[in-house]
């Protein structure tokens, strides 16, 4: 299998006043194409810090990170921006859509910064991505006219539109109710089934059951890294949920 992500003894220290905070204390793992990895751990264990490394938003204090075979650590700010633009799709807990902007324009955003994509192709790809996440009928709705679940779908479409090597999600279901969370999870499982590489940071241990691999962090170190032999179907779980009542 092709290695998408290779971390070699990654450390990340923060200087806070006189004190040095060791957020990551030597993390090494390899993620291959098509894996759906959940990253868990208590608050402050370094999950977001790790995701920022993976997403090329931050550089490690030491260690090496290869994304799609490309070493990232010595890259300049500008080069990392381009790398994010071509190889990474982010999904955030609070959606982070542009306010008062249509779904299509939101999804187009990453392609706006890629000058090799024409305006026509950009719109087509945005529409295709929105159709893929089930929002084909809401292309021109503005972000403030949508529900949380819909906004997160738009965000996922935005993460898909540049056909990234890896999709990174930080608490992507953290703001949603159980039912909507499962709907989003179904979407992620479908993307996984299509062969996409997904890294999903979560607090919720239940979600680990729907992924193919689970990494647990503690205090900036890997405490556990296990493949999941029995991946549950989120679609089944969704069907088993009690139907929402109208009186609710």
């Amino acid at each position: 299998m092709k290695k998408v992500i290779e971390l070699i003894n990654i450390k990340r220290n923060f200087q806070v006043g006189d004190e040095v905070v060791h957020a990551l204390r030597g993390i090494s793992f390899t993620i291959c194409e098509g894996e759906f990895v959940t990253i868990m751990g208590t608050s402050g264990s370094g999950k977001s810090t790790l995701l920022n490394q993976l997403g090329c938003l931050d550089t490690p204090t030491s260690g090496e990170y290869l994304l799609d075979g490309v070493p990232v650590r010595r890259m300049k700010r500008r080069e990392r921006a381009v790398l994010r633009n071509r190889k990474i799709g982010f999904v955030f807990q609070n959606y982070n859509l542009l306010p008062k902007t249509t779904a299509v324009e939101n999804v187009e955003l990453p392609l706006m910064y890629n000058s090799s994509v024409s305006a026509r192709e950009r719109t087509q790809r945005a529409i295709r991505a929105l159709e893929r996440v089930g929002l084909g009928s809401r292309l021109y709705h503005k972000s403030n006219q949508m529900s949380g679940g819909q906004m997160q779908r738009v965000a996922i479409a935005r993460a898909l539109v540049n056909d990234p090597a890896v999709i990174l999600a930080d608490e992507a279901t953290g703001n949603l109710d159980t039912r909507t969370s499962f709907e989003i999870l179904v979407l992620f499982q479908e993307l996984h089934a299509e062969g996409r590489t997904i890294i999903f940071v979560t607090h919720n241990p239940e979600i680990a059951q729907y992924s193919s691999r689970n990494i647990v962090l503690r205090d900036g170190q890997i405490k556990e890294d296990k493949l999941n032999p029995h991946i549950l179907s989120a679609a089944d779980a969704l069907a088993a949920l009690p139907k929402p009542t109208d009186e609710d």
Binding site: G55, L57, R78, A81, L109, P110
Partner: peptide, 16 residues
């Protein structure tokens, strides 16, 4: 600020 952060995370460079 948040909008700028988002733009950067999807690949906008400083110059953009």
């Amino acid at each position: 600020t948040k909008e700028i952060g988002l733009r950067m995370s999807v690949g906008a460079r400083g110059i953009d």
